[in-house]
Simulated assay, not measured.
Amino acid sequence: MQRQQQGFTLIELVIVIVILGILSAFALPRFVDLGSDAQAAALEGAAGAIKSSASIAHSAWLAGDRTSPVDMDGTDVTMSTEGYPTADDAGIMTAAQIDTATDFAINNGTVTPVGFDDTSDADGDGTTGECSFDYSATTGNVTNLVTDDCV
């Protein structure tokens, strides 16, 4: 007479748990480093906001009397002689509505996350501080966008 099996044996359950443990050991590290991806995405978003704001401010400068400041939705934005927002808090950061106290800082046209450790080398390539981009008040362009060390 054969006996019908009504469930899993203990050894089968242990094997399934071991297999799940091995799989999670390989899969978990891929999802642990989401902070640097978020920081890089935020930096790319800020670069996009600055590009758009520079274009809108330049259009307002061209359509107006070509003086500084330009009124953007009730806020004065300081403009360069070329007609783009200046590379400072009163210029491009105001135009893009980026909070320089908590989000991003601008120094000589280089935009970095607030509190970013410019001595970090997260990707291990020997170059530190690669989490920034440059804004030019002369052309309104965003250049040198690097996210390698965003953490």
Rank of each mutant, 00 (worst) to 15 (best):
A63K: 05
N108H: 13
I50N: 01
M1C: 12
T102K: 06
A122T: 08
Y135R: 05
S68H: 11
V114H: 08
L34W: 14
V151W: 04
M72R: 15
I50T: 03
M1R: 07
P29R: 03
S52R: 14
R3W: 09
A95K: 00
V151D: 08
G109M: 09
Y84K: 07
S53Y: 07
A90I: 02
A96L: 03
S36L: 13
C150W: 00
T100V: 09
Q4R: 14
G48T: 11
E12W: 13
E12N: 13
Q6K: 10
Y84C: 01
A40C: 09
D33E: 12
I17N: 08
G7F: 08
A41K: 11
L10P: 01
T81C: 05
D134H: 14
A57S: 14
Q5Y: 10
T112I: 11
L20S: 08
E130W: 06
A46P: 02
E130A: 13
R3I: 11
I92E: 01
M72Q: 14
G21Q: 06
T81N: 14
D33H: 15
D103H: 10
Q6V: 11
A25R: 04
F8Y: 15
V18Y: 07
D121F: 06
R66C: 11
A38H: 04
Y84S: 03
Y135K: 04
L145T: 00
T127Y: 09
E130P: 06
G109K: 05
P85S: 05
N108R: 12
A40S: 12
T86N: 03
P113V: 06
T67C: 10
D88Y: 00
M79F: 02
M1K: 10
V70I: 08
Q5D: 13
F26N: 07
F116W: 06
L145N: 01
A41C: 12
G124R: 08
T75S: 13
A95D: 04
A46E: 01
V32K: 15
A60G: 07
A47Y: 03
K51E: 11
F26R: 05
A95S: 07
P69R: 10
G45Y: 07
S136I: 00
M93F: 06
D89I: 04
D33Y: 13
L23I: 13
P85V: 06
V32D: 00
V18Q: 05
L23M: 15
A54F: 02
G83A: 07
V114D: 09
A60M: 11
A38N: 06
R3M: 11
D118F: 13
Y84T: 03
T143I: 11
G7R: 00
A54Q: 02
P29T: 01
R30N: 12
S24I: 12
M1E: 15
T147E: 10
T143A: 11
A42D: 15
D103G: 12
N107T: 09
C150Y: 02
I92D: 00
A40P: 00
